[in-house]
Simulated assay, not measured.
Amino acid sequence: MLGVIGRALAAQSPLIIDGAMATELEQRGVDTTNELWAAIALIQAPQSVRDVHETYFEAGANIAITDTYQANIPAFEKCGISHEEAEHLIGTAVSVALEARERYRQHHANADDALAYSFPNYARPLLVAGSVGPYGAFLADGSEYTGDYHLSDTDYRDFHRSRMQILADSGVDLFAFETMPNISEVQALIGLLTDEFPDREAWVSFSLSDSGHLCDGTSLETAVSIADACPHICAIGVNCVQPELVTNAIGHISAVTAKPIIVYPNNGDVYHPDTKTWTRCSDALSLSDLAPRWVEAGASLIGGCCRTSPADIYDLAKALHR
């Protein structure tokens, strides 16, 4: 039986994922230079999070990723927020994404109303994926780009369980295990998904040091084979990587799995985790230029991560659904 991603791909392929949240929040006046990063907006400006989601749906995205990458109960508590309020804020991240989807549907209720690239809205899947960022994101020291942290399987599960439960209870369509640099954490998440959320599915997207290895040094093919063995993992890929790594990474992934391949890289700018700053890359190819190659290589879910915008997603959707 097809899961949520399988059904969506049967209706439209490739599927378009949204782009950066923090970049768009900054454009709306939200200061994300803090340990909570984009999740600070769940406290200060939840309506801005909703508006960003809606803007991406308008741009052609099929999948909105909730603003919960760095939103977990220990992170909120570390900032002086109560456990109960932290739970509420994670639920808020889901509710504003669902509200954005409903607002989009209401605005385009006429079946004859189509996006600029002429894909009819009535046939267009719209999903909300609950972001489950790595433990390294909680550390807020760039560890999601090194994978240099170590917990027991039980401790990883305890860290992720409450956020996943709130995401599931609040109505996400699936989980997004994203920017995963550490294979032990991935194994713990897969175990948690299998044992405690057996009616749910998730995608896994890895953070890479090069096109063939996770940040912790694990072979990408080894990591993919571990994810492939879990029937609850519906797609496997990479995100928050440089665009030039993607084509070769797809080759490593497709050599191991027949599951849908998901890629959503950064825009080509270079991130410096030590200073939390970016160096602009003015000559990087756009997502819309590169995505047809990724489809040809085997990807079927494509979007953008850090520093990408609704304009990038619009161009991407237009390029892939002419």
Rank of each mutant, 00 (worst) to 15 (best):
K78H: 05
V128D: 07
Y156G: 05
H252K: 04
F119Q: 03
G251L: 03
Y117I: 07
A291M: 13
Y135S: 08
P14S: 02
S118F: 09
Q27A: 11
D113L: 08
Y69E: 12
V94L: 02
L192F: 12
C306N: 05
D51A: 15
L127P: 13
S309G: 09
I73Y: 06
D31C: 07
G171C: 11
I302K: 12
A61T: 07
F177I: 04
A20T: 03
A129S: 08
M180Y: 02
P310I: 02
T275W: 12
Y314P: 03
D199A: 05
T277V: 10
H232S: 14
A11G: 03
A116Y: 07
M164F: 01
K276C: 12
A8W: 13
V94K: 02
T154K: 08
F206P: 11
A93W: 10
N72E: 11
P134R: 05
F197E: 06
S286N: 12
P265S: 15
A71G: 13
R280G: 07
H213Y: 01
I253C: 03
D312H: 11
P265N: 11
E185Q: 05
Y156R: 00
R157I: 13
E99Y: 00
F175Y: 06
H88M: 11
L126S: 09
L193R: 02
E85D: 15
N267V: 09
A255V: 04
F138E: 07
E84L: 07
I166N: 02
S209F: 04
T33Y: 14
S118L: 09
Q187F: 02
H88C: 14
A129R: 06
G217P: 06
L98Y: 13
R163Q: 14
A249F: 06
Q47N: 06
V52I: 12
T257W: 00
L2N: 14
A140Y: 03
Y314G: 05
Q242A: 14
A284Y: 00
P265M: 13
D269V: 11
T33V: 15
L42M: 13
G6Q: 15
T257C: 05
F119P: 05
Q242Y: 11
G3N: 03
G60M: 04
V186D: 07
A93P: 12
R28V: 13
A137N: 14
Q44M: 01
E99W: 00
K259Q: 07
R322I: 06
G60V: 04
A176D: 00
I63D: 03
S254K: 12
V186C: 11
G171W: 10
G303R: 04
G91N: 07
C240K: 03
E244H: 08
S152K: 10
Y117G: 01
N239F: 13
Q44N: 11
L192S: 10
A291C: 14
D67N: 15
N110M: 06
R163A: 08
T68F: 05
T55L: 05
L2Y: 13
P231G: 13
G147H: 04
L115D: 14
E144M: 05
V246Q: 11
E244R: 07
T33F: 12
R105D: 12
V52M: 10
F159Y: 13
H272C: 14
E144Y: 08
N267P: 06
V49H: 10
A319V: 01
Y145H: 01
L2Q: 14
A93V: 09
I43G: 03
A319L: 04
T55Q: 11
I166H: 00
Y156N: 04
T247F: 08
V128I: 15
G304D: 13
L127H: 13
R200L: 09
H88E: 15
S118I: 14
H232N: 15
